[in-house]
Computed example of a mutant assay.
Amino acid sequence: MAIDRFNVHNKRRNACMLHGPFAHQGYDWWWHSFTAQDALTGEDKPFFIEFFICNPALAEDEPVLGQLPKNKKEERRPSYLMVKAGTWGEDACQLHRFFSLKNVKMHKSAPYKIAADDCLASESRLKGHISISEDAAKAHPEWMCDAGEISFDLVIDKQIAFNVGYGASKPLRDAEAFAMYWHAEGMKSAYGGTVTFNGRQYIVTPEKSYGYADKNWGRDFTSPWVWLSSNCLVSKKTGKQLENSVFDIGGGRPKIYFVPLDRRLLGVFYYEGKEYDFNFSKLHLKVKTEFSFDETENEVIWHVRQENIKAVMETEIHCLKKDMLFINYESPDGKKNHNHLWNGGNGWGTIKLYDKKGQDLVLVDEVEATHVGCEYGEYGE
């Protein structure tokens, strides 16, 4: 990969990474988020779909759920495929369906493919169904999910990538150095197809899907946990939609060989074909990052300032609490450390992008962002 490029597609990095020690204590997930339109009203509605694999080497005939009291007492680590799907808004919910990994067909090398019963995920296709009754959700808190029903049948066109290039691009012997890895094969993706949620149909069209697709893998999650991204962007300079642009920010407090680094974020802006890279692992860019997260009575707010030797990006994103949920995961060791992980898809805000000219900052554009995917959480909250 060219050292100063991040829009480099690499399906090998999107393949299953649970080899070696990660097979016994590791997770790998493929995340998808997009906007659909109500078939009757045309109203926008955001959705997310994720395929999450945990500890494949520990597979049993039935899914092993780490939050089940008996398993917690015996310190049994979880093992399963979890198909997660849901929506944001005032009816925000997350639905989980679990499979034993003995009943999952996986094409582990690139291009990846995961299939279990009527659920399928691959580079270009998503299909599945989840149905959880109110009684079942209440009776099974170890499922960590809400009640509802969703089905989806989608195609994906991954157009712009964010290839982080750090850690996982090193030889395999170093592939477990970091606690959490990230690759966005479809930082800007176009989705098409249909979603049916609680009996209502939604149409997904590529030009209005504002889609995103990435993956994370590792042995643990980061804390704090930060994610912001959107490709629904309008230039304040011209008033026009930016058709070939996307920004993506993620990270928090990475660990290398179990040693936490200072609070750091990876950030990029693909601005109408020009790459602005704020990846702290590229030492020659001398990246500096400041970020904060605030809660008001009704909103959560992210402030991020990133600087490299060539440019500055200032990002402020808002999201209404009523449109968000606390997204649930358990880590491969069976603990559930993130219990206050804000997650939304209805964020909005501004990004100010500057070029450095000597000691001066020259405004490239101030960009209005909507349909922003957003996350923040810390352990112990």
Rank of each mutant, 00 (worst) to 15 (best):
L101H: 12
E123I: 04
P141A: 10
F98A: 15
A136Y: 13
C119T: 13
K102H: 11
V104E: 08
A110Q: 06
I114V: 14
L101K: 09
D135E: 14
N103I: 06
A136R: 12
V104M: 07
K105Y: 15
E134M: 02
D135L: 14
F98W: 14
K127S: 10
M144D: 08
E142L: 02
H96R: 09
Y112M: 13
H129N: 08
L101Y: 11
K108I: 14
E142G: 01
S122R: 06
A110Y: 08
W143H: 11
S100H: 10
E123F: 07
I114A: 00
D135F: 12
E142I: 01
S131W: 08
H96K: 10
W143E: 03
M106K: 06
K127T: 09
N103M: 04
I114F: 00
S109Q: 14
H96D: 13
M106V: 15
H140L: 04
M144P: 01
I130F: 02
A137C: 08
L126E: 06
H129A: 09
M106C: 12
P111Q: 02
K105L: 15
F99C: 11
A115N: 08
Y112S: 01
S109C: 09
S100Y: 13
K108T: 14
Y112G: 02
A110L: 01
S109G: 12
S133Q: 05
L95V: 06
L95R: 04
H140T: 05
A110C: 05
R97T: 09
L126R: 04
E142N: 03
C119W: 06
E123A: 05
D135T: 14
N103E: 12
D118K: 15
E142S: 04
R125F: 05
S109P: 02
D135M: 13
W143M: 05
K138R: 11
E134Y: 04
M144N: 03
H107R: 14
K127R: 12
E123C: 05
L95M: 04
H129D: 04
H96V: 08
A137D: 09
V104S: 10
